[in-house]
Structure formats: structure tokens, C-alpha cells
Design a protein around this nucleic acid. Sequence first.
DNA 1: TAAAAAATAGTACATTTGCCCTAATTCTTA
DNA 2: TAAGAATTAGGGCAAATGTACTATTTTTTA
Lengths: 208, 208
Amino acid sequence: MTTEKLTTKERILTTALHLYNEQGADIVTIRHIAKEINISHGNLQYHYKNTEEIILALFNQLAEAMDKGMAQAENPAIPTFAQFLADTEHMFSILYQYRFIFLHFVAITQRVPEIKKRYNAIESNREHQFIRLFHNYQETGIFRTDIPEEVWIDLVTQIFIVGNFWMPHNEIQLQLKGQKAVRHYVHLVGNMFYPYLTPKGIATVQTS
Amino acid sequence: MTTEKLTTKERILTTALHLYNEQGADIVTIRHIAKEINISHGNLQYHYKNTEEIILALFNQLAEAMDKGMAQAENPAIPTFAQFLADTEHMFSILYQYRFIFLHFVAITQRVPEIKKRYNAIESNREHQFIRLFHNYQETGIFRTDIPEEVWIDLVTQIFIVGNFWMPHNEIQLQLKGQKAVRHYVHLVGNMFYPYLTPKGIATVQTS
DNA sequence: TAAAAAATAGTACATTTGCCCTAATTCTTA
DNA sequence: TAAGAATTAGGGCAAATGTACTATTTTTTA
């Protein structure tokens, strides 16, 4: 990382992200953020008219990072199950950096409707990716072929629900911090697939 | 249902529940609720010092309804998978009536910490119930016996995540209303179990 | 370097909200 | 029925917040 001076706009975003993650987007106001970086709230408002714009800018950062991660996971060198889990961990780590969004997901999407649209578009993409991946694993004999298509589709939905809401679940039930939380729920995702594996698939997973 | 006059306390709770579900607990204030039922906010405050007390009272209603539902599901006449899904539907319907809690679950538990404690206690109970249920189904040959214990435990966590967060997921992605939403996610829960079924188990499910 | 644009600081104001308090009214009960 | 308790209405206030606005300083650029 370079140590160039950050622009005010950049400092606003990093500080806002920090405060949002610490205290929640419902509590932190423009004045709080301004105070934290020692600028006037009038100045902050010059850069971002209101908190909605800041949240949207942060979401765009997240979406960009997710796009990169997805592109990377799209064509793995070796398409193993272990690789899939490593990619999932990478994705979950990115999501965790923006956890204030997912801890209050509905409130955020109500406050910034644009986010809902964008997120659903991303997820729709991701759904097709999963279906392709499953067929892939079926062809290589890792996943079972005696399961109705409908069940696979619902499996994708399950993954989405866990993917979007593991942070609230952790907040309420476990309170794990940082990578500990990430790894815990990635492990859970791994186990979600266990009963879908063939005997050969199970052998593959256990040796890796 | 009797048509006796409701007490002010009761009217406050039903009106608050309605407003919370419609507009969200973050927006609705004591003054809003008072206005809706045409009493002064001073009067409302006489009955409930603040909104936290109202929310806690509503949660207690929910907890009571859930307890009853659980007791009913505990010892089913015929322990079939179809019965299990019917019980799940009943539970999900109850949860849906108090959807304002689950749409902003983290915010609610932060605002009324008592709710977090109570809910975790309930869920802990429910976890044991599930494990017993699974063993039961294994003994009757409906569920597979070649799956590690760890995977069953994580299955319970999955069910909890889906059980607690299907409403936010619906709000953001599908926007189904009422029983349509309930049935959709109960069906999803049903499919979650498919790969855990034995061939005999699959036959049992399909004929029902 | 002078003018224009960008950035910054800070003021002002209307609204909302939680909270506290008092007065009036209605309902119980001894 | 009269005293006491419960209930109801509504005012007052401080703190917080979003928003708009002005004035000043710094940076760009022609």
C-alpha cells in the first residue's frame, strides 16, 4: 500500500465504514463522521449530500470487490471442492468488511433502494454460476445425480440466505469476531454440501 | 372470538404490532401509536413507559405462542415427515405475525437486550428437539445413518438461519405476502431435508 | 497573477423525539 | 357517597438531526 495522502472524499468513506461497522448505520450521522475526522459537517455535506450517498458509495465499493472475487472464482485452475471453499472464504471476508450492511440489511435497502436493485442483479448472476458449478461437479462424479433439479435450486437459495444472513445470526447467537466468524460459517457452508456428495466425492473432500 | 371491549393496554399492543409490521419499529414512535388509537401520548406512556416496553410485551406474546406451538409439535400423534412440515408451517405463520421483529432482528435485539437472551434460550431448547427428531427418523429408516454427527448439527444451524431470516430474504428478493411467503419457505425447508433421506424416506415423502 | 472553481467552516432553523410534569376526569371501594 | 386510585390529556423542554445558507480560505487554471 502506498502512503499517499488520502483525499477528503476517501477519508470520509473509510471513516464512515469504520463507524458504521462499530455503531450501526442507524446511529451514525453526518455530524458524527465529520467530527471523527475533524472536518466541519458543512464540508462533509459538500462531498456527500447525505448519509444515503455515503452508504451507496460504500456499497459500490463492496459490489466492485465482489465482482472481482467472482471473476476470480469463475474459472478456477483446478475445480476442486476445496477450491470452492477457499473462494467462499474470500467472498465471506469481503462481506464481513462491510458487515454494517448485512447486520441491518432490510433497513439499508429501505433507506437506499438502489442497493436492493443492484444486489438482486448480482445475486441473479450468482445463481446461474452455482447451477453451472453443480452440474460441473456432477459430471466429475463428486455430486450425486439422483436428486431432483428443484432441490438443487432450493440449495442455491439456502446458500444465499446463509450468505446474506450469517452475520446477523452470529451477532445474535455466537458473537464471533473477524476471521473466526468467517471461518465458522464457511465451514458450515462446507457441511451443507455433505449429503449431496457421492462416495467418491466424500473421499475427495476428506483427502484435501 | 368474543367482541368484548378491549382494554387500552390491549389496544396499544395490537395497534403497535400493526404499525410496526407496516412501517418498521425504527420509525413508529409512541406518539404515532397514540395518534392511531386516538389517545394522548401521555396516556400511552402511562401504560408503557417507552417503545422498548411495548416491543418486549409483543415479543412475550410471540414467545408464548411459540411455546404452545412447540409443545404441540413435541409429541405428534403420527411422527411423519408431513406432520413435521405442517408443524413448521404453523410455526412460520406465528413468526410472520410478528415479522417486524425478524425484518430488523439485530436492531431489535440491540434495542431490547432482554429479547436476545430469551430468544437464545428458546432456540437452545429447540436445538435439542431437532437432534432428537433426527435420531427418531433415523431409527424409523427415513433418514440416512451414514452422515457424520457434525453435519446434522450444522443442519440444525441452517434451519435456524433460514427460520430466523426467511422474512428478510423474502423482503429483499421475492416480496411474497402472507401465507404465500410462509408456504414458499416451508417448502424450501422441506427440500433442505431431501438429500438426507433414505430411499425408503423418499418413498414415504412422495406418497404423502 | 488574477479570476474562477473547489473546498472548508460554521450559523440558523424547523422538526422530531424522549422524557418529565401537572391537571382533569373516571372508576373503585370502603 | 366520599375518598382514594387509576386513567387520561396535554404542555414544556432539552437534545439531536436534516437541510439550507453564507462567508472564508485554498487550489486551479487561463
